[in-house]
Design a protein around this nucleic acid. Sequence first.
DNA 1: GAGGCAATTATTGTCAACAATCGATATTGA
DNA 2: TCAATATCGATTGTTGACAATAATTGCCTC
Lengths: 226, 226
Amino acid sequence: MDEGTIEDALAARVRSAVSDGRLPPGTKLPEELLAEQWSVNRARIRTVLQRLSFEDLVELKRNRGAFIATPGIKEARDVFEARRVIERVTTEIVTRTILTPQLNALKARLDDRERTFLHGNRQQAIASISAFHRSLAALAHNESLAQALERLILRSALILGLYGTADTFARASAHYGTLLDEIERGESIVAARTMERCLFTLEKGLDLRPDAPRDVDLARVIGQVA
Amino acid sequence: MDEGTIEDALAARVRSAVSDGRLPPGTKLPEELLAEQWSVNRARIRTVLQRLSFEDLVELKRNRGAFIATPGIKEARDVFEARRVIERVTTEIVTRTILTPQLNALKARLDDRERTFLHGNRQQAIASISAFHRSLAALAHNESLAQALERLILRSALILGLYGTADTFARASAHYGTLLDEIERGESIVAARTMERCLFTLEKGLDLRPDAPRDVDLARVIGQVA
DNA sequence: GAGGCAATTATTGTCAACAATCGATATTGA
DNA sequence: TCAATATCGATTGTTGACAATAATTGCCTC
């Protein structure tokens, strides 16, 4: 068996589903259902859930099961403060070290983002914003920072899905163009501040009323290949 | 059974043993040995090891077993860079918000640290430094930052144990007194810079030659209560 | 009819036996 | 003597059955 990476694949599948809102907060993830949907043993599901709970993406309640986490307000504040701290620096590093092809790749991603935006799908917007920040951070070439940020980005996706309003993204969106321009011009300090402001905008745009819990066809969502 | 927290306890035990160097990098952790030492089922050991591997404290090699992680040089650099980023900010926050009793607690801890220092035990010095940074960060009241930092501190303990020289700690030590003074005077920016410099000192003091692998009486180390 | 209590059920937690895998050792041939 | 190889042993990975637990449902009493 070439397994050993199969757990990674399954965890990634859940992450992706959370990222784009197919699995809203509070959704229960029964072991047996996942097991049969993915045709693996329950023990392996257990491992996956364990890992996801370590990432604070799912909450493991003893004898109750696994649920997609539901971050509270205070947690939301913390997460965005932490992101500002980390992304300020990564932005600075990236501005000083980025090469042209990488910059162009970022620009392309930004275009994607704006296209998605016009399309109006909120969950896609969240996923797209996440991807942009991820890509930017990766260019700082620091595994520790990237790893710490990855968790925060995932939590943010949950938070934005829960509390994000339609124009939360619209307002934040305005910053991205500016950011890339400043990066291109090598103005590292200014770019870092723009990134910070962008994250501030996202945070300020949060609406504290949670969505009404949606019903989810779990089997379908889980069963999807990607 | 009031279990459900027993895995936490076991994981904590390993962390502690790593923190103060009783379990040096590369040490193999056989499931069965741990299981009988702690009189629990192997499945539970498996869970614990899994969790520790998420924290990058142990490396899980397929069909080979679990080993205490052995961070490389590049990783060491990354970790300290990340710590500077995070601790600069936490220091700043703490300086602006700390209350007198908390400050006194920190001072007491610092005294502890210096006493340990004179005592000359290197592993205790590492554990003590870790504890100090942890306490400081906790005062920033941001779970996300604290959590991210916790991992970095643990990795640092491994790294310092591997590459730290005798006077690595002596040099870094000089900063702590200054740091607390500046915090007391409320000079947040200056304090943040001092913290940064302290971490720089620690990093610069690393000696890249790893220790000769020590032999460890695993059963004894694992069996210890705390 | 409402509230509380008890049996039921669905789900997770635990366990021990079995299978698969890797490394080491011993053996054989040149 | 050295190298390549096959066998062996120790350790981990896997599986299914069983136990424990908490929510749910139905029932009984008030």
